[in-house]
Design a protein around this nucleic acid. Structure first.
Lengths: 137, 137
DNA sequence: TCTATTGCTCCAGAAGCTATAGGTTTTGAG
DNA sequence: CTCAAAACCTATAGCTTCTGGAGCAATAGA
């Protein structure tokens, strides 16, 4: 049996976050001690580690809920799990592409750095005038 | 004189968002018509375009407030504007780096796709067991 | 037994909007 | 001029994923 603090230390998930996950239905409400404190079994530790890992990979709470539900049914085909992961990968790739565009634009803006005044500051001019941009964003 | 709807159409910033920016102090409270509706001057249109552009580039409301304040003082040195842009560029680059790590990890997880069941699904196993990962995240 | 630590619930805040409800003003067609 | 549709107003709540604080109760170790 683990207290919520034990669970937190072992998984690296902060205590209020664990309670939040309980509220959100990612983990079940655990047994309580006589004094109403949460007492967890080892299986909850593993479940929380799963959640933590998935969150680190950027999966949404909703996706994680779906994956957890799937993992309760080892006999079913796992196309759904593959789909969730593949979709997420696509999202990540899109984000990277978009950020790279931003990076280029910002590089261009910052490149004209120097010792001058706001009046002829390229950063501020570029922000004021979209037509100075190379690409859409 | 533009109504809030005109302003919205011309800048692509949604109406509730314009009101939100007013609340946040990015744009001044404009004059009102007799019937209490907002009436904007052309200068506000330019200011809003500036904000829009900066938001598209991912700058925070706070950074934009600072940049706008700077642009009111064309005679001052512009090191501060350069600093804000450079700092933001660094943030963007960090985000890209982190997402690339995620991309790799997800690629590895998804690669083992196939026709199988949840019980031996690599996606779910990989999420459950961090030690299967290549890199830290 | 006493006290430091940990835990409890409830509530608010962060970022940047977006949406809804319930009302008023403006605009344009007839 | 009249009347309805479109646009506008305020206030408030919700989204997402937590995080932190207040005020109080339980637990663990010396």
């Amino acid at each position: 049996m683990y207290s919520i603090g034990d669970l937190s230390r072992r998984t690296g998930v902060k205590i209020p976050t664990i309670r939040y996950y309980e509220q959100m239905g990612l983990i079940a409400a655990p047994e309580r001690s006589e004094g109403n404190q949460r007492r967890y079994e080892k299986s909850e530790l593993e479940r929380l580690a799963f959640i933590r890992h998935a969150r680190d990979l950027g999966l949404s709470i909703d996706s994680i809920r779906d994956l957890l539900a799937l993992s309760q049914h080892p006999e079913r085909p796992c196309g759904e799990a593959d789909r969730i992961a593949t979709e997420h990968l696509a999202t990540v790739r899109e984000k990277i592409a978009q950020l790279k565009k931003l990076e280029q634009e910002l590089e261009r803006i910052v490149a004209c750095d120097g010792n001058h005044t706001v009046g002829d500051c390229y950063v501020i001019q570029a922000l004021a005038d979209h037509s100075m941009c190379d690409s859409e964003h």
